[in-house]
Each structure stands twice: as structure tokens, then as C-alpha cells.
Write a protein that binds this DNA or RNA. Structure first.
Length: 285
DNA sequence: GCCCAGGGAATCG
DNA sequence: CGATTCCATGGG
């Protein structure tokens, strides 16, 4: 088990007992698209309709202006703080290659995001690059999200369902606009019930997700992993396909299968980081 | 101009 | 079935 320690100091919350975590890697590895930082230490973002300023310092996480209520209801689960990543990494490190990956990319935690935001975000991600994905999502929030703090919340499915493809022109999402609208319509109408996705048999959940136009196996797995807590999902994109053929020709080692989604993030980050290191750092961040 | 980007739908043998 | 091609847009 984790030995999480939570201390209040004024209006801030300080959380320690998670020394193996790397906040910057976690927020900037391409699993969530609404976090930004000027210095790589302090991060600002909006999730579940709440703005957060957070930094990693003195061996812990500093949640600025955060009530223990918000921490318990939102951030504790969002940052997956009750999972013992140390034990997980020790277990999968019985494989030599995974041990190296854990050492170089094991600070990432899989964020538990809002299911609708995750579905919509990974629809936008298809055949796209991370900086542009962030831009499209930011414009979508500015276009029709509710104001929150210094920014805008991610718009609800109902709000987007009230719009047309032409209405989405300002966000410049290209051919993905029609997919966003279809997803919003199916979620807002109840035809796709995202609240069931955390408990449905995984093949049923995946099939449900794929009833949305523009949602195939990869986007479905990303939405299930990052938005519905389904860590058995292992989304395969171009980076993972490359990494797997280079590092694990016989597939994911059995010891990692129960945590496939978390290990996928480690591998994804490890592979992209090595690409950046060997190409002069000009690889997309 | 080219190629690629956290893919998927449509089309064609 | 598997293999191509097209899809919008922006950066390198």
C-alpha cells in the first residue's frame, strides 16, 4: 500500500509519500491535453470543471488553493494517488527491458480523466500531433466551455450536441469535426452511456465506444484507459507499434499484462524520449 | 513541394 | 478478408 501523507498549510494542501512520481512527465506525456507550465515545475490546468495550480517540490505535491474536499472528490483519484506504483514497478522489473523503461519513464501515473473529455480528446488526436491536439482542444473550450478561473472548462456533450459541424469551424479540427458532433449526440442522447464503461466487460465497452463515428480500436482504448479507469487496455499507436517491434517482439511480457495501460504509458514515454535524444531534440514534444 | 502526426472510414481486389 | 487511399490542418 501507499503511505500517503496529506498536510494542510493555509489554503494549500501538501501531499507526500509518492516520491517515485514525476509530475512533469505525468502532465506532459500526451495522455491529457489541458496542462501547461512556464518553468516545468508549476503546472496549471482544468479538469472536472476545476482549475488547479500544482507543483512538485520538497519531495511531494503542492496543491495551491485546494480544499480537502476537492482533493478527496477530484484530485486524489485523478492523479491515481492510491495505487502503489512502487510495488507495480518492482513487479514488472523482473523483466530486464521493463526495468530499464521503469528507470527512465516510470515516474508517470495514468490520470483518471473525465470520460467524455477523454473520448472527445482522443477523437481529436487521430492522425494528429500533440501540440496541435492541445490547440484544437483549447479552442473548443474557449468556444463553448464554461468559464473557470483563468480559463474554460471542457464543454459538456450536451453543449456540443447543440452545435453543428459548421459551428466547430473556428477550432480548425478538420475532418474530425463530424466525429466530435456524432460522439456528442450519442452521449447526450444516452445512446452511449459512458457511466457504464468502467464496469462493462471490456470487449462490450470497446464495442460500445466504437459505435461512434471516428472511434476505432485505438481511440476506444485511449478513452477507456484514460477516461474510464480500464488499465487493462493497451492502446496501440505508431509509437507503441515501433517500440513493441523493437523491444518486445513476442508481445507484452505476461507480468505486465494486468497493468497493460500503465506500462503502455511507460513504454510510450520511453520510446518518444529516446527518439528525441537521437534526433537532436527536434522531435514533437 | 515533401513528410509526418497518440487513426479510421471508404473503397477495391 | 488485407491493402490502399482519402481525410483537414499545421509544423519541420
Amino acid at each position: 500500500m501507499n503511505n500517503l501523507h496529506i498536510a494542510q498549510s493555509g489554503s494549500d494542501l501538501f501531499v507526500s509519500g509518492i516520491e517515485e512520481m514525476n509530475l512533469a512527465d505525468t502532465l506532459d506525456c500526451g495522455q491529457a491535453f489541458r496542462w501547461s507550465s512556464d518553468d516545468g515545475v508549476t503546472w496549471r490546468g482544468i479538469a472536472f470543471g476545476k482549475e488547479l495550480n500544482i507543483s512538485q517540490q520538497d519531495g511531494g505535491l503542492l496543491f495551491k488553493d485546494t480544499s480537502s474536499d476537492d482533493f478527496d472528490k477530484v484530485w486524489r483519484r485523478y492523479f491515481d494517488l492510491d495505487r502503489d506504483y512502487t510495488a507495480l514497478k518492482t513487479q514488472i522489473s523482473t523483466n530486464g527491458t521493463l526495468k530499464t523503461i521503469c528507470q527512465q519513464a516510470g515516474g508517470i501515473r495514468v490520470l483518471y480523466q473525465d470520460s467524455w473529455e477523454a473520448l472527445c480528446s482522443f477523437i481529436i488526436s487521430q492522425n494528429n500531433n500533440i501540440p496541435r491536439i492541445k490547440g484544437i482542444i483549447e479552442r473548443l473550450c474557449e468556444l463553448c466551455g464554461n468559464p473557470v478561473g483563468s480559463g474554460y472548462a471542457f464543454p459538456s456533450a450536451e453543449r456540443i450536441a447543440a452545435m453543428t459541424v459548421d459551428d466547430l469551424a473556428p477550432i480548425r479540427s478538420g475532418f474530425r469535426a463530424k466525429y466530435i458532433i456524432d460522439a456528442a449526440n450519442k452521449v447526450a442522447s444516452g445512446q452511449l452511456d459512458l457511466s457504464q464503461m468502467s464496469s462493462l466487460p471490456i470487449d462490450d465497452a470497446r464495442a460500445q465506444m466504437m459505435t461512434v463515428k471516428g472511434v476505432g480500436p485505438k481511440v476506444a482504448d485511449c478513452a477507456l484507459l484514460f477516461g474510464c479507469g480500464r488499465i487493462e487496455c493497451f492502446p496501440v499507436d505508431v509509437w507503441i507499434r515501433r517500440a513493441m517491434s523493437e523491444l518486445f517482439e513476442d508481445g507484452l511480457p505476461a507480468v505486465a499484462v494486468p497493468y497493460a495501460g500503465i506500462v503502455q504509458q511507460f513504454i510510450f514515454h520511453y520510446r518518444r524520449r529516446s527518439a528525441a535524444a537521437t534526433s537532436g531534440g527536434d522531435t514533437p514534444q
